[in-house]
């Protein structure tokens, strides 16, 4: 019974910890990052600094090559990923601009598929209209595939979108002329023109998080672990394990874009 008594002075543990944090606030984040497995802490370098984030000796992009795994059979269509992406990356909140979104497929008995993605899945999905005659149904999260052979990079007239050394396709917001050729060239509908900056935007794999050893926001909040982020080539990476234990498909393989978003348990109806 003595264990349950409040500590002398009336401070419970959480309040105590909170007070400690207030004192040592700046230490917390960096300590958390050191706890992360591959945590090359680059702090917050100034944007124009010659010692930029990728230029610091602690993060060497040449030693990384990122990809993502998506297990379709684990996705519950909660839309947390799409919502978190918007919060993390300042994506317009309207239902027509997404860096990642969730589609629901309903395959009917006549083999036809009904697909919907109301507000990218962020607000959930309405009950499917025709329950009868449904063969199977599932959710598919979509995002930029960070192709190894990206058609968007190929067509950009000025070099404002590019593949980084660590395998991420990025857009240079201050250099993009807004011609939208890349949006036309993307087979996956993963790009959009930002209505305010008038430049092309897309998933960055949360590059600002990744260089700090964190996972992308969508992966962080996915409640069922349907998304796996990691190194494509490193044997110890969770992505390698994911690719070893699942039959893997990519979207629209006939276009030879060589996506680095790998889908497990993907249905043939998904386009």
């Amino acid at each position: 019974m003595a264990d349950e008594r409040p500590t002398p002075g009336g401070i419970d543990r959480r309040a105590f910890v909170g007070a400690c944090v207030a004192v040592a606030a700046p230490l917390v984040l960096s300590a958390a990052q050191q706890a992360a497995p591959a945590a090359p802490d680059t702090a917050h370098a100034a944007p124009d600094s010659a010692q930029g984030a990728t230029g610091t000796p602690r993060y060497d992009p040449r030693t990384h090559y990122y990809g993502m795994g998506v297990d379709v059979s684990k996705c519950i269509g909660c839309g947390q990923c799409a919502a978190a992406c918007k919060a993390e990356n300042n994506v317009p909140l309207d239902p027509h601009h997404f860096r990642t979104w969730v589609e629901r497929y309903v395959i009917h008995e006549n083999a036809e598929a009904t697909v919907d993605s109301p507000n990218g899945g962020i607000d959930g999905f309405p009950a499917p209209v025709a329950e009868g005659g449904v063969v199977r149904s599932f959710f598919v999260p979509k995002l930029c595939n960070h192709c190894a052979n990206p058609p968007c990079v190929q067509v950009c007239p000025v070099g404002a979108t590019f593949s980084t050394e660590d395998g991420v396709v990025l857009v240079d917001e201050s250099y993009c002329i807004g011609c939208r050729y890349c949006i036309q060239a993307c087979p996956y509908g993963a790009r959009f023109l930002h209505p305010v900056s008038h430049t092309a935007q897309k998933c960055t794999f949360c590059y600002h998080r990744v260089v700090q050893g964190m996972v992308p926001a969508c992966v962080e909040v996915c409640p069922t672990g349907a998304r796996v982020f990691g190194e494509v080539h490193r044997p110890s990476s969770p992505l390698t394990r994911f690719r070893r234990f699942n039959a893997i498909q990519v979207l629209k393989p006939h276009l030879n874009t060589e996506p680095k978003v790998f889908y497990a348990n993907l249905d043939g109806q998904v386009r």
Binding site: T42, A45, A46, P47, Y207, Q212, M214
Partner: peptide, 15 residues
Amino acid sequence: AAVDSIAVLPIHYAG
């Protein structure tokens, strides 16, 4: 330099 300016964007989800 574009890579560096993207790498330092603010983080919202602490992990």
